[in-house]
Amino acid sequence: MRKQADLVRHLSDKELLLNIYFTQFLIVIVATIASFLFTGHMFGFIEMPSWSFDMTVVFGFFFGIVVVVIELILVRFLPRSWFDDGGVNVRVFQNRSVTQIFLLSLVVAFCEELLFRGVLQEQFGLVVASLIFAVIHVRYLAKPFLFIFTIVLSFSLGLFYIVTDSLFAVIAAHFTIDFLLGLAIRFGVLKNR
């Protein structure tokens, strides 16, 4: 975790954003390749019925708000050190405009949910997709509370996907979580995340 934090600390703002967007591009490439391997179609995830855009999207935003409220309550009552990811999230969001946080949150939510719910969960189930989601957030591996929180969040998003059968709803939830927490960091509500 410290290694990643040190790397991020030495990147310029432009390099940091390029790294984040490049990582998300790689996630879409992996999703496309995996979709081809598992379904025989490069964009098999697009043909799935889980692209419904209906009231479940509203529930996605509500789900995201509930997660953020829970996290803000936990931050208030638990030791601050439990939430310290080495300053990576602060570095990512602290000096961004609201528009940049919005766009970054949207891209991350779309790309990650496409791979983890749209491809991996569809092929391997909730448990495998959720555990892989938690593990790719490597900076949390050395922090037991953050890692457990990420696993619980991932399982929750996976269950929400099962209940709604809508990738848009899960993308909306993931976006809302990242966007609101990004704003909380940007405006000083969360200092060590």
Rank of each mutant, 00 (worst) to 15 (best):
M1S: 10
Q4M: 15
Q4D: 08
Q4F: 07
Q4W: 07
D6C: 03
L7E: 11
V8T: 09
V8S: 02
H10V: 11
H10Q: 15
H10W: 12
L11T: 11
L11A: 08
S12E: 10
L17C: 08
I20L: 12
Q24M: 15
F25I: 13
V28Q: 04
V30E: 08
A31V: 09
T32F: 08
T32A: 14
A34F: 06
S35P: 13
L37D: 05
T39C: 08
T39Q: 03
H41V: 07
I46V: 13
P49S: 10
P49K: 12
P49Y: 06
P49W: 07
S50R: 12
S50V: 09
W51A: 10
F53M: 13
D54P: 02
D54L: 10
M55S: 12
T56S: 14
T56G: 06
V58L: 15
V58C: 09
V58Q: 07
F59N: 10
F61V: 03
F62R: 02
G64W: 00
I65P: 02
V66N: 05
I70H: 03
I70Y: 08
E71I: 06
L74A: 14
L74R: 09
V75T: 09
R76A: 11
F77G: 12
L78R: 06
S81A: 15
F83P: 14
D85H: 13
G86C: 07
G86P: 07
V88H: 01
N89W: 02
V90P: 05
R91I: 03
R91H: 05
R91G: 04
F93S: 01
Q94D: 10
Q94C: 11
R96C: 01
V98Q: 08
I101E: 00
L104E: 00
S105G: 13
V108A: 00
F110N: 06
F110E: 06
E112R: 04
E112V: 04
E113K: 08
L115D: 02
G118L: 07
V119G: 04
F124E: 07
L126Y: 08
L126V: 11
V127C: 02
A129M: 05
S130G: 12
L131W: 08
I132T: 12
I132F: 12
F133N: 04
F133K: 05
A134C: 14
V135Q: 13
I136K: 05
H137G: 05
H137V: 04
H137P: 00
R139E: 09
R139I: 10
Y140Q: 09
A142T: 14
A142S: 14
A142D: 11
F145W: 10
F147R: 05
I148P: 07
I148D: 02
F149V: 12
F149D: 06
F149Y: 15
V152C: 11
V152M: 13
L153D: 03
G158S: 12
F160S: 02
F160Q: 02
Y161C: 01
Y161H: 12
F168N: 04
V170M: 04
V170A: 10
I171S: 02
H174D: 04
H174R: 02
D178H: 01
F179C: 00
L181I: 07
G182T: 06
A184F: 00
R186F: 01
F187N: 07
G188M: 04
V189A: 11
L190I: 12
L190F: 05
K191H: 13
R193H: 03
